[in-house]
Amino acid sequence: MFASKLLTCSALLMLSGAVLSQKFISLADAEFKIPDTSSEHPSQETSSTSTSTSTTSTTTKKPTTSSSTSTVTPLTSSTTSTESPKTTTTPAPVTTTTKAPPAPSVGTWNASCIVLQMAAEVNFTYEAKDGNFTHGLYNIPSTASIEDSDCTSQTIQFIHLNWGPETSKQSFLMYFDKKNDTTELSSIQIHLNVLTEDFPNAKENQTIQLIHRGAGEFKTPDKMSYHCTRVQKMNLTETLDAKQLIGSISVRDVQVEAFLAANATGFSVVHDCDSSETSDVVPIAVGIALAALILVVLISYLCARRRSTSRGYMSF
């Protein structure tokens, strides 16, 4: 009886164990049937439990603002591309509107103590009707007459030319100085009335005073005439002490002589501007020095040769 009960209990225990094992197996199989979330989030690994899978899906969700921020364009790019840089323009300098005169002709003037021959053109600045300043060209006429001259002084002499109508006389003066038996130009003074018939765009009733301070021009020894065919340009200012240039005068084919003797009939011996101003004493002195040097070298050579010859005889 006891044995049969024992067998019955053992059979029940084995049966219950088998049932439990089948349940566990079914539960294990059921875990593998959980829906796969890897299709939604391919970057996350599949977990072994349903709780871990749900947690992973919530943490790897992509932000929704990434697509919208990538399409935003700065407003400044469109505004700067449409604006054009502002440019400032400076007014061009006023140029001469008057017709340039022909080349000046050569004139000759004789004031007994000063004989002058030249062609001169003046380039100066004047005020136009619009208030701007422009350049004008004016030729000293070859038909100008001698207004005055000073032949009494033996240190300073001048010649004064004028031309034009009586109501608006133009004038040209040249001063010469004599120092240490040398004559040179000391100054030029020009007085011009800017007439509308010569300069139509000029402001009316305008007078120009032009002065040049001499700086060794037309320099020549005493009793010789200065001669130069090439163009020479000299600056002009308003006064002798002024530094601001307002023009220039160009002269060519110049021959002039001041401090002439009373009985002179024309120009003296010509001193050309392109000739050498070196005194004749210098080349003469250089020639004498070279001759003396050659003589010394020759004497030294002869003395040395004589000594060598005498030593040769003594050796015998």
Rank of each mutant, 00 (worst) to 15 (best):
F2Y: 08
L12N: 05
L12A: 15
K23Y: 10
L27H: 12
L27E: 13
D29C: 11
A30P: 01
F32C: 01
E40L: 13
P42R: 10
S43I: 14
S48C: 01
S48K: 10
T49F: 15
S52K: 11
S57C: 11
T58Y: 09
T73M: 02
L75H: 05
S81A: 13
S84L: 14
P85L: 14
T95V: 09
T98V: 07
T98H: 15
A100F: 14
W109A: 02
A111D: 04
A119K: 13
V122P: 00
V122I: 15
N123F: 11
T125H: 02
T125L: 08
Y126I: 04
A128P: 00
G131K: 05
F133G: 00
F133W: 13
H135E: 09
G136A: 04
A144V: 06
D150W: 08
C151P: 02
Q154M: 10
F158Y: 15
E166P: 00
K169L: 15
S171D: 08
D177E: 06
K179T: 12
N180L: 06
D181V: 02
Q189I: 06
V194A: 06
L195R: 11
D198M: 06
A202C: 01
A202V: 12
T207D: 11
G214Q: 06
G214V: 07
P221F: 07
D222Y: 15
K223C: 01
K223Q: 11
K233G: 00
L236A: 03
T237D: 04
E238F: 12
L245C: 00
S248M: 05
S250L: 04
V251G: 01
D253Y: 06
Q255M: 06
A261M: 01
A261T: 07
A261I: 00
A262E: 12
A262D: 12
A262W: 08
G266N: 07
V269T: 11
V269G: 04
V270E: 07
H271E: 09
D272G: 04
C273I: 02
V281P: 00
V281H: 04
A285V: 10
V286Y: 04
G287E: 08
I288L: 13
L290G: 00
A291T: 12
L295G: 10
L298T: 09
A304K: 15
S310L: 15
S315I: 06
F316T: 09
